[in-house]
Amino acid sequence: MQVLVINSGSSSIKYQLLDPDSGEMAASGLVSRIGESVAEDATTVEHRSDGRTLEHQGAIADHAAGLRIVFDLFARSGHDPRTAGLTAVGHRVVHGGEVFYRPTLIDDSVVESISELSSLAPLHNPANVTGIESARTLLPEVPQVAVFDTAFFHGLPEAAKTYAIDAKVAAAHGIRRYGFHGTSHEYVSGRAAELLGRDPAELNQIVFHLGNGASASAIRGGRAVDTTMGLTPLEGLVMGTRSGDIDPGIVPHLVRTAGLDIDGIDNLLNRDSGIKGLSGVNDFRELFRLIDTGDEAARLAYDVYVHRLRRYLGAYLVELGRVDAIIFTAGVGENNARVRADALAGLERFGIAVDPDRNESKDRAARYISPDGSEVAVLVVPTDEELAIARAAARLVA
């Protein structure tokens, strides 16, 4: 059994071909800089399979062209999806709105509905649709399944998902907390339960998905009861280039005093804020290099980042009442011991502690980083959204 997983971004396509049962990956790759002008010798596709890497160099006009190149590289590596008897193609779709809250078999009406939800995710859903349409053209006989980032948070309690604005306005425009990174939060919390040897229904967990985009969730008995991202992926934690929480009054203030229009404000908050807006960089390795040279702006950016993590940790501790596990995942969460240690520093009275040696370990597997006998297990669990999407697609098709 093989499933091709496609994650189509605005100028990129990430993909994996894998067995959803074993998790064994036959091939993976990245198409980058789609629609951009690049030099003829610039690498725009890297395809990895059977221990070797194949590359494509040169400009890629659009997503359809990118996927055609990918399929040619698949054929050269001996894993052509067109002849491999695929079980399904699984597509990551960022926003499902109120319409989609479980994996969904794709047809023309589903594509149209995902497109209509683009007003809620203008940076993501149009690109997701483009990838879907390209894959359906190349693999017309293979079932295609949409798996939605928002699905895990669809059932949030009313008090957690409702914004305190005019109810009629909210209802008319689909305004509620949707949450994102749901596939990761669901997968990681399930893996944590396996590591603990416990039934997820027995556990209260806090998950920190910390990458360039970042979110946290409170999970009670396997169900999400709160999360930091909201109507869009902008709300919540400080991120690489996104502001996270701000006073909404900042928006009209900037319109009046800085002359910014809606597009300018959107660009400011999504692309020029967060760690980048405060320090000038959004890579944590570069941020720590600046901190270690005494750069005060970098130090402040990091302090603001950790302060926001701790604020939500405290809120979720109170909301859950009892916490069995705190889990870190994604690029920063899995690889940055300094962030993990600082986020949980001084919380021993709450049963939360980090073992320095375990925390600094370079082990890439799911693992404990709390001391033996800790009341609250602190874990690092690598996320695998592609595997989760592949399994969801395979289950639906079966």
Score class of each variant (00 low, 15 high):
M1D: 04
Q2W: 02
V5K: 03
I6T: 05
G9D: 11
G9N: 07
S11C: 10
Y15Q: 04
D19R: 01
G23S: 07
S28I: 00
G29V: 02
G29A: 04
L30K: 02
S32V: 13
S32E: 15
S32W: 00
R33W: 07
S37G: 11
A42L: 03
H47Q: 01
R48P: 00
S49K: 01
L54S: 10
L54Y: 03
E55M: 03
Q57G: 01
Q57A: 15
I60V: 13
A61N: 04
A65E: 14
V70T: 11
F71L: 15
F74A: 14
G78E: 03
T87W: 01
V94C: 08
G97H: 06
E98Y: 00
Y101K: 13
P103Y: 10
T104K: 07
I106E: 03
D108K: 11
E112H: 13
S113M: 14
I114Q: 08
S119G: 05
A121K: 02
N125V: 03
A135R: 01
T137I: 09
L138I: 12
P140F: 09
E141R: 12
Q144D: 13
V145W: 05
F148G: 07
D149I: 11
T150V: 13
A160Q: 10
A160E: 14
T162I: 11
Y163L: 12
Y163M: 09
D166G: 01
A172W: 00
G174R: 04
I175H: 08
I175S: 11
I175C: 05
R176C: 12
F180E: 08
H181M: 11
G182R: 04
V188Y: 03
G190K: 09
A192C: 10
L195K: 15
D199P: 02
D199V: 08
P200I: 12
A201D: 13
Q205H: 02
I206N: 10
L210M: 11
G222H: 12
V225R: 04
V225N: 04
T228F: 02
T232C: 09
E235R: 07
D247F: 05
D247G: 02
G249E: 05
P252S: 08
P252L: 09
H253E: 04
D261V: 03
L268Y: 08
N270L: 12
N270V: 03
D272R: 15
S273P: 01
I275E: 04
G280S: 11
G280L: 06
D283S: 14
R289D: 15
R289P: 00
G294I: 13
D295E: 12
D295P: 10
A298T: 08
A301V: 09
Y302L: 11
H307G: 00
L309E: 01
L309D: 10
R310C: 06
G314Q: 13
L317Y: 10
L320D: 04
G321T: 06
A325W: 04
I326S: 08
I326R: 12
I327Y: 06
A330E: 07
N335Y: 00
V339E: 05
L347M: 15
R349F: 07
S361V: 06
K362A: 15
D372A: 15
E375L: 12
A377T: 09
L379S: 06
L379T: 02
D384K: 03
E386T: 08
A388R: 08
A392K: 14
A392L: 06
L396E: 05
A398C: 06
